[in-house]
């Protein structure tokens, strides 16, 4: 019996190799995504609104914007087709992200989807999946799920008889409400979208790396190719087009749920209302919007 045949026992409800809530089975779902995890996005945001608000914020805070390219970061890609006609004072949608570790099977589909969607350079990551293996002798070992999957990676795997339990924890930007990365950026290159999503304005970033140091979760990196700060932005460009983030769409088990948390009927709101969730490094007071089901003390 190899590690892959092990029942994955987690601190949450026990699952056997796949999705517990009857969503979709590991093998039976194309990477097109899990429909239960795809609430409709009723985006009320328009590019114009965002620009207006963000520019006002910037100008208000600074009273001077001497340099060009104020809000033209790569992250702020204009949505191609937007529902329009909403008054600019309309309440912005609030988004949330739920990671259900009890559903993650370490398939790694999300990793490729993100890399392709966002052009993430090799050796760097906007998202990754950690595998926690608790051995019977008390050791806990953590490693990264390889993008090609464990089987294809050829890495030696722990023997099933030595393993007490194992689970996977996907990581991505926590979209902290009180984001240290945003706080420390000296030039307004770390900006919060009106929907509360933390973005990098790549035209303003001076590449100081202060935000990389300030993120307690290791999410930010200096992009080797663009030489500016980079990070997961919940696929903001897709969200603005009423699409799901690439990783959510690719996840075959519904372990990643994205949607509006200000809509009580959305899938994420329903799950948040019924499942016990927690956040990473809560003691730091960053107030993450990314919430987890089934986090253990081991997860940092």
């Amino acid at each position: 019996m190899s590690f892959f045949d092990l029942p994955i026992v987690t601190s949450g409800p026990a699952v056997s190799g796949a999705c517990a809530s009857g969503g979709c089975a590991t093998g039976g779902c194309a990477s097109g995504g899990c429909s239960t995890a795809r609430p409709d996005l009723k985006s009320e945001t328009s590019r114009r609104d965002f620009l207006k608000t963000a520019t006002t914020l910037t100008l208000g805070a600074m009273s001077l914007t001497l340099l060009p390219g104020a809000m033209a970061g790569d992250d702020a890609v204009p949505p191609a087709s937007k529902p329009s006609g909403f008054p600019s004072h309309a309440k912005k949608p609030m988004y949330g992200f739920l990671i259900d570790t009890t559903k993650c099977t370490g398939a790694g589909k999300c990793l490729t989807a993100c890399r392709v969607e966002n052009g993430v350079p090799e050796g760097q990551a906007r998202t990754w999946v950690e595998r926690y293996v608790h051995f019977k002798d008390g050791r806990v070992e953590v490693d990264l799920v390889p993008e090609i999957g464990y089987a294809a990676s050829g890495e030696p795997q722990p023997a099933a008889e030595d393993v007490l339990r194992a689970y996977f924890v996907p990581k991505l930007c926590n979209q902290c409400v009180d984001a240290p990365c945003n706080q420390v950026c000296p030039v307004h290159a770390s900006i919060k979208s009106p929907e509360g999503i933390e973005l990098v304005d790549t035209d303003r970033c001076i590449g100081c790396g202060y935000c990389v140091q300030a993120c307690p979760y290791g999410i930010r990196y200096m992009n080797h190719e663009t030489n500016v700060a980079d990070k997961c932005n919940w696929c903001y460009h897709r969200v603005m087009r009423n699409e799901q983030p690439a990783c959510v769409e690719a996840c075959p088990t519904g372990a990643r749920v994205f949607g509006r948390i200000d809509d009580p009927d959305s899938e994420i709101s329903k799950r948040l209302a019924t499942l016990p969730t927690s956040v990473l490094k809560q003691h730091l007071g960053t107030l993450p919007l990314t919430r987890y089901v089934g986090l253990t003390d081991e997860v940092t």
Binding site: M62, C185, P186, V187, G207, M222
Partner: peptide
């Protein structure tokens, strides 16, 4: 700095919340 040509942004458009 990875973008030294933008160094003066620090004084031109400083963010009040940043220690730097």
């Amino acid at each position: 700095l990875h973008q030294p040509q933008r160094a003066l942004n620090v004084v031109a458009t400083p963010s009040p919340s940043s220690a730097m």
